[in-house]
């Protein structure tokens, strides 16, 4: 391309940005990274629905690093955006930068994960799904489906991560109500297909071909998809011999549900821009005290 063309293009581009900035609200969004299937879909939806709401979204991918994220938030403050959305990489270490945002009178909204700050007024609210509720929904579905009698194998997410801890807690809270429901084996598959497949292969051997096992609960769909492959390779029928319930509702699990190889998946909605932006825009119009956590509802999808 000719250098002049590039330059001309850049000027036109800058002009377009300047034009939109004049009219629209400018919001900075610092995203964790682009791991798995769910997060890129979440990022894409946030960017698309920003256009629908006429928001000028400044998107920053932190590549899974908090220092990158802190830098992005400070850049948003320096640019004087109208609001900042943060999907925190980790829960700690936020006091300082959030104070800077507050001093600059820029409201901060959390999405997805939580932060641990002493002064809760440093952010307006957290808008996210409830991992614990997802676990409860999965447990409730399984309790109904198995009529309260079920030996379960569990594929945990990355050990110590918030979704793994909360989904496990929520699931256990429900099944503990049923004396004949118990988790007989649990291991971490690290939220990956590869991990889920390896762990299920081991479970198949340690439980004598899943003898007496009525269900597999996976903390995400990717691990469950791996488990489905492992079971098929061992000559078992996932979805028929064993009930398969997981969380996320990614495109590949929809295919598995349609094929009858998975039974239920709790949706972790990625199309949440339409839920998040109205809350922020309303707040920017008339700032009022909001609840510290606004829960995005979860849906459970089954094969039929």
């Amino acid at each position: 391309m000719h250098p002049k063309t590039i330059f001309g293009g850049a000027v036109a581009f800058a002009a377009t940005i300047a034009a939109t900035m004049a009219s629209a609200q400018t919001i900075g969004f610092s995203q964790v990274g682009s791991e798995g299937d769910w997060r890129p879909a979440f990022s894409a939806n946030m960017q698309e629905s920003a256009k629908e709401f006429g928001i000028d979204l400044k998107f920053a991918n932190a590549q899974g690093k908090q220092e990158e994220q802190l830098r992005a938030v400070r850049a948003f403050i320096a640019q004087g955006v109208d609001a900042i959305i943060v999907a925190p990489v980790v829960v700690t270490g936020w006091d300082q930068v959030l104070r800077e945002a507050k001093e600059a009178e820029i409201p901060v909204f959390l999405v997805d994960r939580d932060v641990d700050v002493e002064d809760k007024t440093l952010y307006v609210t957290r808008i996210s799904a409830d991992f614990n509720l997802e676990g409860k929904l999965a447990g409730a579905w399984l309790a109904t489906e198995s009529k309260g009698t079920c030996k379960i194998v569990e594929l945990q997410g990355t050990t110590g991560s918030a979704p793994a801890i909360e989904r496990k807690k929520g699931f256990e809270a429900v099944i503990s109500q049923f004396p004949a429901m118990e988790i007989v084996a649990t291991q971490s598959g690290d939220f990956t297909t590869e991990g889920g497949k390896k762990v299920m292969e081991a479970f198949i051997k340690s439980t004598n071909n899943l003898d007496g096992i009525c269900a597999s609960f996976a903390h995400n769909d990717n691990m469950q998809l791996g488990a489905i492959q492992a079971m098929k390779e061992a000559g078992l029928k996932p979805g028929t011999d064993v009930q398969m319930v997981s969380v996320d509702y990614v495109p590949a699990i929809k295919d598995a549900l349609a094929a009858g190889e998975a039974n239920a998946s709790v949706e972790l909605r990625s199309a949440v821009g339409g839920f998040i932006y109205p809350i922020i825009l309303d707040y920017l119009k008339s700032p009022t005290e909001l609840d510290k956590w606004i829960v995005i509802p979860s849906d459970l999808h089954t094969a039929n």
Partner: peptide, 16 residues
Amino acid sequence: IMTADTHTSDPVSVAM
């Protein structure tokens, strides 16, 4: 071998 094993491409976490 690893990619065909899970029939999916997962650049973020495969072979971590």
